[in-house]
């Protein structure tokens, strides 16, 4: 789904940056994507996606 309507950024875009670029916070995410640069109403949702992606990754590594 679209997280940031202002710049058309999806949850998949954010997950990709977290996985490939290792972004762990919204501030780091902003270096790669224009999240939260317009109205700012997506910041909370973006943070939640970062957190969930990191948790998923850790579980995956534990299993591996």
């Amino acid at each position: 789904m679209f997280v940031c309507i202002c710049n058309g950024i999806t949850d998949k875009d954010i997950q990709e940056v977290v996985r490939n670029e290792g972004a762990g916070s919204v501030r780091e995410l902003k270096k790669h994507l224009a999240v939260g640069k317009d109205c700012g109403s997506c910041v909370k949702a973006a943070q939640r996606i970062i957190d969930n992606t990191i948790i998923d990754e850790t579980l995956f590594q534990n299993v591996g």
Partner: peptide
Amino acid sequence: GALSIGEKTEEMLQC
């Protein structure tokens, strides 16, 4: 409020 907009039909219905 924040809009929840899906990318595909199924996701849009879920949103």
